[in-house]
């Protein structure tokens, strides 16, 4: 069995905590960001930070849903850890002079929609839906984007921070895939149908309507940064490889759905998928800011300051 011992994992998580104050944010190296990199990097960092926050909110919902106390506690740690990643990324932005005073950078509209959806509905979604979408987001966006960053930025403090962040992420993925397998275990026809039932739930359809354009939008952002989109696809394929390594993992119907969807995303020549989704990205770009409700109060918890 590829499954991990969750109790041991929880102990490991508890014993490997770190804080923003473990890093010297004023150490030399900030000037290694080139003038040309700077504006693009600023946008990229803002997106990255918000993706962490999407993960955070999803883990918060999963912590309420988890079937065991151990898993509940693990998710409550992951929730806080994603917040820590966002905080650390904000501290990097601060270091690079990318923050206007205490302002929290704005998320792009597609992220904003996903956050809105999560805040409204995530607590009501079953664990197996979030439990599959989250590892995908983590591996594709979180994972791939971090990798890009390290490939392009030489600042040692950035590398120091992401070494810690990546350690956390490897545990998130370990638990994520393990839970996917647990939920695929003993899949029968009835169980599969039950697990797919939320697909008919209009609330989930709204979620899908914000998730699809997000992936395309991030792809566009990556291309704009001058990075090869193949790297994003390679990360997404990793999801299929790891998630499908066991029979249990493969028999999780949500793994199959997310995997299939990833194939659409990766295949640019699939016009049936990309034409409408790209149109949605464009359309959402026209949503006026005031049409959106106020940001939820948890958003204001972000900070670049190591101590409070």
């Amino acid at each position: 069995m590829a499954s991990i011992d969750l109790d041991k994992m929880l102990l490991k998580i508890k014993s490997t905590q770190w804080s923003l104050s473990d890093i010297d944010w004023d150490a030399p190296g900030a000037d290694m960001i080139t003038e040309e990199q700077w504006p693009k990097l600023k946008e990229f960092m803002a997106d990255l930070m918000w993706i962490e926050h999407v993960g955070a909110r999803a883990f918060a919902a999963m912590s309420k849903k988890a079937p065991t106390d151990t898993l509940k506690e693990i998710y409550s740690y992951f929730h806080a850890e994603e917040q820590r990643h966002a905080n650390a990324e904000m501290a990097l932005m601060k270091r690079w002079g990318m923050l206007d005073g205490d302002e929290i950078p704005e998320p792009n509209i597609n992220l904003r929609l996903v956050i809105e959806w999560l805040d409204r509905y995530a607590d009501e979604m079953p664990l197996y839906v979030l439990g599959t979408v989250v590892p995908m987001l983590e591996i594709a966006l979180d994972g791939a984007l971090c990798k890009f960053l390290l490939d392009t930025v030489d600042d040692p403090v950035c590398h120091q921070a992401f070494e810690k962040i990546n350690d956390d992420e490897s545990r998130h993925l370990g638990v994520g895939f393990s839970v996917m397998e647990m939920q695929g275990h003993g899949a029968t026809y009835i169980k599969t149908v039950k697990m797919l039932a939320p697909l008919l739930d209009p609330r989930l359809l709204l979620g899908i309507a914000s998730y699809f354009p997000l992936l395309n939008k991030m792809r566009d952002n990556i291309v704009e940064l001058g990075l090869p989109e193949e790297k994003l696809y390679a990360a997404m394929e990793k999801f299929e490889k790891i998630g499908g390594r066991t029979a249990d993992g493969r028999s999780n119907p949500w793994f199959q759905i997310i995997r299939q969807h990833a194939k659409f995303v990766v295949n640019r020549s699939n016009r049936i998928y990309h034409v409408p989704v790209d149109a949605m990205v464009k359309l959402t770009g026209y949503i006026p800011k005031r049409a959106l409700p106020a940001v939820p109060s948890w958003v204001k918890e972000l900070t670049y300051r190591p101590s409070a």
């Binding site: 804080s19 850890e81 190591p306």
Partner: peptide
């Protein structure tokens, strides 16, 4: 030394 460190990475003093 100065307070409580929580998992979101902040030291509350």
């Amino acid at each position: 030394e100065k307070g409580i460190r929580t998992v979101e990475g902040i030291e509350h003093q």
